[in-house]
Amino acid sequence: MRSADFVEARRRLEAKPQSTGDKLTTLTEAVRKVRDGDHIAIGGCLFSRSPLAALMEVLRQGRRGLTLSRNLMCYEGELFMASKAVDGLMTSWFDIALPWGLSLKLREEVEGGRIRFEEWSHLGLGLRYRAGAMGVPFLPTLTMLGSDLMGVTDTKTMQCPFTGETLCLVPALFPEVALLHVHRADRFGNCQIDGYPHMDTDIAKAAATVIVTAEEIVDEEEIRRQPDRTVIPGLVVDAVVEMPYGSFPHECYGLYEADFAHFEAYTDAVKARGTGAVNDYLERYVHGVSGHEQYLALFGEEALARQRRCAEELLGPR
């Protein structure tokens, strides 16, 4: 869909059957809602609360021609490029983090002209999701002005009709699919997140289809006891799946810390053997397993327990 087309986005939403019923399903079924060519907005941020289990299932189901957007994109982007599943990436930053060096896979693809890479400022992309969440065509902002990012993105400037000042306008983003991982949800899709909200609520409201994995599915009474903690109402959610460790080896706030040793091993392999190591990783962690349980078994109980202890050391028991 054309960016900023709030009329079409609203029509698309109204045309969709809306349900207040049970949305609890399996990962396989939930991810079947993703179609070739979709724009998938990914929740969390970098290696925090990433919906990794769902993303890996998208790869397992062999989708093609996707566009991925994310505030900061981690190595999941590399896996999609190596799978030839994406035509375009939209983000403000792409890497694991400074200690692990530049992404060699990103370099290969962008420098070789093999992928559309659209760079926004972090806030610029955040406001695109927010405009989508608000159902308006654009938002004015004071960021990005004067920079070369203006020339490589679909931004416009305008003179403020009230003050005459120059404003940057960012167009609303209406992704086909939002993939989110949250701490707890009920079977109706009411979601609660602990710690950083990141951009998840805006992404959920902006997208046409919202697929949620949750560390834990709780009874609806538990949600109703603390409705102030609910950040995404079931009304905007299309499918919800119980997926403990659904972000692993990325972190889930307060529950398990990111497994930095795993990042190290992965990037060491890419540095040593080249980007073919990304394909090896895909073979082992995505296609070599039937689903999330087998995937977690590759890390082992001990690693999961260790990362839980790290989280507890930092933020106390949950």
Partner: peptide, 12 residues
């Protein structure tokens, strides 16, 4: 010649 990680929040 070299694709770097990008702005992140630096521009903002």
């Amino acid at each position: 010649k070299v694709r770097l990680p990008g702005s992140g929040g630096a521009n903002d």
